[in-house]
């Protein structure tokens, strides 16, 4: 029974991983790629680790997998946030068809104020 649940979790997790990396290849600019890749790959990997917990039971590997889930859930959005901020500050513009960029507007205003 628990092996079946583990197998289902593994299949769902790996399909989310595939969708996330497909988004990394297909989407037009870095911010959209970050959106797809971060969300899908984080949940996909967490589901694979949860599958390990169901497969091996609540022993040494299972507890380590649970700690790994907790760590990935904290670190992955923080890393995405750091990359997005670094990219914007290093001067990467949004995709041409984007609707608005309040962040660039506000930062240009600050730069003019400081001069």
């Amino acid at each position: 029974m628990s092996n079946t649940i583990g197998l289902i979790l593994l299949i769902v997790g790996i399909s989310f991983d595939l969708v996330g990396t497909l988004g990394l290849v297909r989407l037009p600019d870095i911010y959209n790629r970050l959106q797809a890749a971060t969300k899908c790959v984080t949940l996909g990997t967490c589901m694979i680790l949860l599958g390990v917990v169901f497969y091996t039971g609540f022993n040494s590997s299972g507890v380590k997998a649970l700690l790994c889930i907790w760590f990935i859930l904290i670190s992955s959005p923080t890393g995405a946030h750091a990359i997005a901020r670094g990219a914007h500050r290093s001067g990467i513009r949004l995709w041409e068809q984007s609707k608005m960029d309040k962040y660039a507007d506000d930062r240009e205003g600050e730069a003019i104020k400081q001069e």
Binding site: A65, G79, I83
Partner: peptide, 20 residues
């Protein structure tokens, strides 16, 4: 940079499957 970040997470998933 984004691709390398995602690569790290995927390798963690691979280690999990090797555990099984």
């Amino acid at each position: 940079t984004v691709a390398i970040d995602i690569l790290g997470t995927l390798v963690v998933g691979m280690c999990a499957i090797f555990t099984i």
